Lab assay of single mutants.
Amino acid sequence: MLDDRARMEAAKKEKVEQILAEFQLQEEDLKKVMRRMQKEMDRGLRLETHEEASVKMLPTYVRSTPEGSEVGDFLSLDLGGTNFRVMLVKVGEGEEGQWSVKTKHQMYSIPEDAMTGTAEMLFDYISECISDFLDKHQMKHKKLPLGFTFSFPVRHEDIDKGILLNWTKGFKASGAEGNNVVGLLRDAIKRRGDFEMDVVAMVNDTVATMISCYYEDHQCEVGMIVGTGCNACYMEEMQNVELVEGDEGRMCVNTEWGAFGDSGELDEFLLEYDRLVDESSANPGQQLYEKLIGGKYMGELVRLVLLRLVDENLLFHGEASEQLRTRGAFETRFVSQVESDTGDRKQIYNILSTLGLRPSTTDCDIVRRACESVSTRAAHMCSAGLAGVINRMRESRSEDVMRITVGVDGSVYKLHPSFKERFHASVRRLTPSCEITFIESEEGSGRGAALVSAVACKKACMLGQ
């Protein structure tokens, strides 16, 4: 009897593995994704193909990295998701002549009506938060230079001027797309009239992360975010950046690689679950690469896999709870928690219980395998993109072996128990001629924006502006 049951459990697990095998990517698959990513990057950089390229390769006008001589107080704003952060950054000489960066910050959550109302409502709310922060720190009387981390696709015309191309991540505030974001912020500050600010720089969160990590390690020339969304930036040779005049030196390019796949480059790798996630998203047909990796989508992918296993009578005796059938019910943090389970399955059992399920031991094991399959594919897909960037940098610099540091931020990278190990191992397999160091950014977005502002202020002083 026991043997029969054991055989049935083994057969069930084997069927589960057959279904989950769809998520496995072979090294040849990853090399294919990497080569296609490089081709799209090239198209994004070139003037004649930029418009139709899915990977936009947006110039950021960040050319210099901090040298350690900029000092002063800077205000930093960070808008990239449902939370908005205001930070005071003091850049100065530390002990023994070292450079020191001290920060104080406060988080504000953005109400739904500000995210989806008008641009005026959104930026009025942001300036209200700045006003509140300055009151708390008794700094209303000071006109501070301000660095703005704005983590949406922007076409820069200068370091302090950028046109919002399109909202992502659930934002829909009308009247912002096609307009200068810094102008919208300046107008809102003017409307309030109770404080003055000098907006000197606007950067993407990947750029802010790279600059913040450069402060720790001067070989950091790539910034990457794996959180709600997924994106990367890197220092490109100016001669390859056709959208900006000049051939000397390097400029940081914001790849906006989340949109890779929007022209069909990933079609052969998309599964039924991916198509369902895409169809029910706020932007169907867009940001397809990001939807395979980002935390906004990972939990939902797992939920759809679990429903398939229920329908195949391989999980929960073929019956799903009402909660499990509800879109968004299986949160991405559950994926991390399930994979963090120590082996007694308590954590998995508790999560499934909150979803109205009474799982068996085998159910718990199957749910864990589903989570591992989805998150491992995410790590491997992400590795193909980064390997594409790094191999490109090595080739354009004609280096036999390139040493490089990548600064990384984002909740999936930082909080998932195995993502970074799987990701690092896969990147290294795909970049055999590179020695890569990964560092995690601390308060990256805010500190990085302030350091970019410090560079901009120093330049302005040198130019006598």
Rank of each mutant, 00 (worst) to 15 (best):
M393F: 12
V302A: 07
G117W: 13
R368W: 06
E248R: 03
M37L: 02
M41Q: 12
E93F: 14
G285M: 13
F74Y: 02
F438Y: 05
L292Y: 14
I189W: 10
L122K: 06
A378D: 02
R325S: 11
S373K: 05
L309F: 14
V199H: 06
I390L: 11
G178L: 15
W257S: 02
E93N: 11
Q38A: 07
G162I: 11
V452F: 09
E399D: 09
C457F: 12
D365H: 06
H317K: 01
T168D: 14
K142H: 10
S76R: 01
Q219W: 05
G229W: 11
G175Q: 04
S127P: 08
S54F: 06
V222T: 02
I225K: 01
K140M: 10
D187M: 09
T361M: 05
H416D: 09
K39P: 02
E14I: 12
L271T: 01
F419G: 03
M298G: 09
N166Y: 07
E279S: 15
P111L: 07
G193S: 06
C434V: 07
H105W: 15
G97D: 04
V389H: 05
G299P: 07
S396A: 07
F260E: 00
V154R: 09
G147R: 05
C364W: 02
T116V: 10
V16F: 09
M121T: 08
M107H: 12
G261N: 06
H50N: 09
M210N: 00
V338H: 00
M107P: 07
D365F: 08
A173P: 06
E95V: 09
K56I: 02
N231P: 02
R308N: 03
F148I: 07
G388D: 04
V406K: 00
D73F: 01
S69Y: 10
R186W: 03
C364F: 03
V207H: 01
V408E: 09
F84I: 10
Q337M: 12
N240M: 02
R191E: 06
D409Y: 03
D267F: 01
G446T: 15
H105L: 06
V71D: 00
Q239P: 09
L25F: 13
F150R: 15
M57F: 02
D409C: 09
M37N: 00
L352S: 02
E339F: 02
G223Y: 00
G407T: 06
E120A: 05
A454Q: 14
L25Y: 15
Y413C: 05
E95A: 09
M210Y: 10
N179R: 05
E331Y: 10
C364S: 05
C371R: 00
T326E: 06
R368G: 03
R303G: 01
F438S: 02
R36I: 02
Y289L: 15
T116Y: 09
G246W: 03
C213D: 00
D205L: 06
L309N: 04
Q98G: 09
Y289M: 15
L79I: 05
R403E: 13
V200D: 00
C230D: 07
C364I: 09
Q287A: 15
N204E: 14
K190G: 13
E177W: 09
T255R: 00
A6D: 04
V182G: 12
P432H: 15
Y125N: 02
L309Y: 03
D3G: 08
N283A: 14
G356A: 02
E421K: 08
D3L: 01
D217H: 10
G446H: 15
M402Y: 10
V253P: 00
N204W: 02
D262K: 11
Q347K: 09
T116R: 12
Q98S: 11
G343N: 02
G92N: 03
Y273L: 11
V374T: 05
Q18Y: 12
S398V: 02
S353A: 03
G410I: 07
R5F: 12
P59A: 03
S174F: 03
R325Y: 13
K90E: 06
L301I: 12
R43L: 15
S441G: 05
E221V: 06
E95K: 13
G97Y: 08
V389T: 03
R85F: 09
Y297D: 13
L324N: 02
N254T: 06
K172P: 05
L276D: 11
K169V: 13
I348R: 03
V412D: 08
L25S: 15
T255W: 01
E322C: 15
G223R: 00
G223F: 06
E17C: 14
T49V: 06
G44M: 07
M139V: 09
S441R: 12
M251K: 00
N240T: 01
A21C: 06
A119R: 11
Q323G: 12
D217I: 11
R250I: 14
V16S: 08
V310K: 14
C434D: 01
T82A: 09
S69G: 12
E221M: 06
Q98I: 13
G183Y: 04
E14L: 14
L30F: 07
L288A: 14
L315S: 07
I189F: 06
G162H: 10
N350S: 00
E236F: 00
M381R: 00
S353L: 04
Q239W: 09
S212C: 06
A425Y: 10
R7G: 11
E312A: 12
R186C: 01
R85E: 09
V452E: 04
N179P: 14
S353W: 11
C252W: 00
M37G: 01
E312F: 07
G94N: 06
M402H: 11
V207M: 10
E28W: 11
P417R: 07
E51S: 14
R394K: 02
A384T: 10
Y273Q: 07
L324V: 08
T362S: 04
A456V: 10
F133V: 05
M202D: 01
R303C: 04
K169Y: 12
V310D: 07
R46V: 09
